[in-house]
């Protein structure tokens, strides 16, 4: 049986989660927007042939992971060094985005574990497969990541 759900319903239901995943991986800027757009365009292309019963949310998070990698690769090809962190003297980020600047400061393993497991909702096992790790390491990285986030936000004087 093929998937027969209106695509718009999937955008409304899962759009925010996919954006959180993209922002956790790429920071809250244009790169995350690019990855979000590429994710949903790819999803729309595949939509009519998707099997009914597919876990749409998990499927979208996996598509988003590939699109995030595409964005990172495209950037490294352009070879323009860039950092998601704001310049030291730039104004503080808006409150709704400051969490993503904090996430951006985490080591990559913690950041990816949070992106796909904590924000993406994938189980430890599946997250481990996606990022080439083990379930135990993903579990540890995610919990270390949360602890680091609390510390970073506390340092910034932001109550968590």
């Amino acid at each position: 049986m093929r998937n027969g759900q209106p695509f718009e319903a999937a955008v409304q239901e899962h759009g925010p989660r996919v954006l959180r995943v993209c922002r956790a991986v790429l920071g809250p800027g244009h790169d995350a927007d690019d990855a979000w757009s590429a994710t949903f365009l790819a999803a729309l292309r595949a939509w009519p042939t998707l099997d009914r019963g597919t876990n749409i949310e998990a499927w979208l998070v996996r598509v988003a992971q590939r699109k995030c990698i595409d964005v990172i690769r495209a950037k490294s090809r352009r070879a323009i060094p860039s950092d998601v962190l704001p310049e030291p003297d730039s104004p503080p980020p808006p409150a709704d985005k400051s969490i993503w600047y904090a996430v951006a400061r985490l080591p990559e393993k913690q950041r990816l574990a949070l992106a796909y497991h904590y924000y993406g909702g994938l189980p430890h096992t599946e997250t481990a497969e996606l990022i080439g790790s083990t379930p135990a390491a993903v579990r540890r990285a995610a919990s270390d990541g949360i602890a680091s986030l609390r510390r970073i936000l506390a340092e910034n004087g932001e109550i968590v």
């Binding site: 955008v11 759009g15 927007d33 757009s37 904090a102």
Partner: peptide, 24 residues
């Protein structure tokens, strides 16, 4: 809470989602 939240389903600005939807 307007302060950053560790909620894994922390809200996203409606304007951001609207802009992304238009782009889609």
């Amino acid at each position: 809470d307007p302060l950053p939240s560790l909620d894994p389903a922390s809200p996203i600005d409606v304007a951001d989602l609207t802009a992304l939807h238009a782009r889609l």
